[in-house]
């Protein structure tokens, strides 16, 4: 009969009206500034640079300015200038570091490719999303000081991934130390065996 479909529709909306008062599954609204969203660990928005500690962020940056991310970045929002000198990294190896590391967050599309291609676990995705600024350049173009965040922060936002990365880096470090020890031992044996030449300069 004419009208039965309309009545059924009215019944459904009425049910939803009542349900909205007692069934939280129906209500999905989050009252945003009052209630901050619970971001999943995998949430990604804008990269940051991982530093080993918070006290000396520029000195302990993992980034070695290899510029792979700059090349792979689809919208080309990363800009890196290599340093002229070298600094020792966490493994004690001398590495370049980025003298300039800019990310234009107005261009960045948070695709995470920089993170995936980084062989040093130096760049990771952040959880910030409220980055409104009044100036496009001073506000949205982040330089390396603004990008650097300590490893503890990484642990805070993505505990699982950070632990895995730490484990891997620790293993690498251990392996490097092992190798260095072995090399030193070999060198020592070599030195004891044959006195002259080859020593000195090669030791890290």
């Amino acid at each position: 009969m004419l009208g039965s479909g309309i009545l059924k529709g009215l019944a459904v909306t009425a049910k939803n009206f009542v349900g909205s008062y007692h069934n939280p599954a129906r209500m999905v609204t989050q009252e945003y500034p009052d209630v901050q969203p619970q971001l999943p660990a995998n949430y990604r928005n804008f990269p940051f640079l991982v530093t080993e500690n918070a006290t000396d962020p520029m000195g302990t940056m993992r980034c070695v300015a290899c510029q792979i991310c700059e090349k792979e970045c689809p919208p080309q929002c990363i800009y890196i200038e290599k340093s002229k000198d070298k600094k020792p990294d966490a493994n004690g190896k001398l590495q370049l570091y980025p003298a300039v590391f800019d990310i234009d967050t107005a261009v960045c599309m948070s695709c995470q490719l920089c993170v995936e291609v980084c062989p040093f676990d130096a760049i990771k995705m952040d959880h910030v999303f409220a980055i409104a600024a009044t100036n496009r350049f001073s506000g949205l173009l982040l330089n390396r000081e603004e990008l650097a965040k300590p490893n503890t922060y990484f642990h805070e936002i993505r505990p699982d991934e950070a632990a895995e990365v730490d484990g891997r880096l620790a293993a690498e470090r251990a392996a490097a130390e092992e190798k260095a020890k072995a090399a030193a031992a070999a060198k020592a044996t070599a030195a004891t065996a044959t006195k002259p030449a080859t020593g000195g300069a090669a030791a890290p």
Binding site: N16, F17, G19, S20, Y21, R26, M27, E31
Partner: peptide, 13 residues
């Protein structure tokens, strides 16, 4: 408010 509730929203608050 009523429309919002019919639509499972909160409405202006």
């Amino acid at each position: 408010k009523l429309l919002a509730r019919l639509q499972n929203r909160l409405g202006p608050n």
